[in-house]
């Protein structure tokens, strides 16, 4: 499949007289293939929105290359913008216009048939509230309007930054169905979200960013598999033997995390090795199961943003893919 979106070595440094320089993107790479739903994940302040804004010509990068639909941007952005629908960060609209007016003005500006306005309002469920002022909308309704504005041009590539933000559970499910439907119709969707369960359900592939660098990418299943760590959970016939069994496994080279009634064992090539090693020492396994990982645990592991009891994590306390360079105060 050809790449619809390619980013290579993207760099962006924000400079401020008072706060000095801050590297928001530090050689970031990303590839999105045609027709897939691609999750774009990262902790707060990791550079997701900066990436999307840079891609869409709102921010000027300091280095790197980007292509959208096969054309170099930002130079070719005026030519490809018609084929890219996007919402960036929180939905922002003029509060005194109605949803219909808002979309109608965008349609006028972009030379889109007015009929599309009615269609997208129907599609996002705002048909009956279309004449109300956007200022009176809830966050979820504004989010729907934002998605409607992105869909207005019938784009080939849809970029949505936190589209489920503020949506009720029904709305989240509708959004999931919408994304799937759009992808099925051939549209490529890039979805930035913190609702990792949703991303795991919706997305074909993901890119995880942390402190301006890509820390993982690929099909969701591959990313999960790569970070499952071949770990297993082990239960013994007698729970009293857990600590002794742990010592045996550690001595044999495994990594062991004791839990109340089991051991979580990693750094082992095959589960059978665990059974054999313990049996040789007279400990008999009653249950052996692979450790299940989900996107959330992979995300927390890769970005090192899992909460730690008694510590208040700061937004920039996340992992970097390579030895730290830049960051605050560069």
């Amino acid at each position: 499949m050809p790449a619809v979106l390619e980013i290579s070595g993207l760099e962006k440094t924000y400079r401020s007289r008072r706060r000095g320089a801050r590297k928001a993107l530090d050689g970031f790479d990303m590839v999105v293939e045609s027709g897939e739903v691609h999750g774009f994940l990262g902790p707060n302040g990791s550079g997701k929105t900066t990436t999307l804004r840079t891609l869409l010509g709102l921010i000027t990068p300091n280095g790197g290359t980007m292509t959208l639909l096969g054309q170099r941007v930002p130079a070719a952005l005026p030519h490809v913008a018609r084929r890219v629908g996007a919402i960036v960060e929180s939905p922002q609209f003029f509060p005194n216009f109605s949803a219909r007016d808002t979309l109608s003005l965008l349609a006028d500006a972009g030379g889109v048939n007015k009929q599309r306005v009615t269609e997208v309002l129907e599609q996002v469920g705002l048909r009956d509230r279309a004449k109300e002022r956007v200022g009176t909308y809830s966050l979820g309704m504004k989010q729907r309007l934002a998605v409607a504005s992105a869909l207005l041009k019938q784009p080939d590539l849809l970029i949505l930054d936190e589209p489920a933000n503020g949506l009720d559970p029904g709305g989240i499910r509708e959004m999931r169905t919408l994304m799937r439907g759009l992808a099925a119709s051939g549209m490529t969707v890039v979805l930035s979200s913190h609702i990792l369960g949703e991303v795991q359900l919706i997305c074909d592939s993901v890119t995880i960013i942390s402190r301006g660098r890509r820390v993982a990418y690929g099909p969701v299943a591959d990313v999960l598999a790569q970070h499952a760590g071949a770990g297993v959970t082990v239960k013994l016939e007698s729970a009293d033997d857990l600590s002794a069994a742990a010592e045996v496994l550690i001595a044999a080279g495994a990594r062991v995390t004791p839990e109340a009634d089991r051991l979580v064992v990693s750094n082992v090539e095959k589960p059978a090795w665990v059974t054999r090693t313990l049996a040789e020492k007279g400990y008999f396994v009653s249950e052996l199961a692979p450790v299940k990982v989900d996107l959330e645990s992979v995300f927390l592991e890769l970005t090192q943003t899992a909460p730690v009891a008694g510590q208040a994590r700061q937004v920039d306390d996340s992992a970097v893919a390579a030895p730290a360079q830049g960051g605050w105060g560069v």
Binding site: G57, A86, Q92, S149
Partner: peptide, 16 residues
């Protein structure tokens, strides 16, 4: 008001 409300950004996404 367009800058402040984000309308300008929306417009620039359509007409970059």
């Amino acid at each position: 008001a367009e800058w402040n409300s984000g309308g300008m950004m929306n417009l620039l996404l359509w007409r970059p």
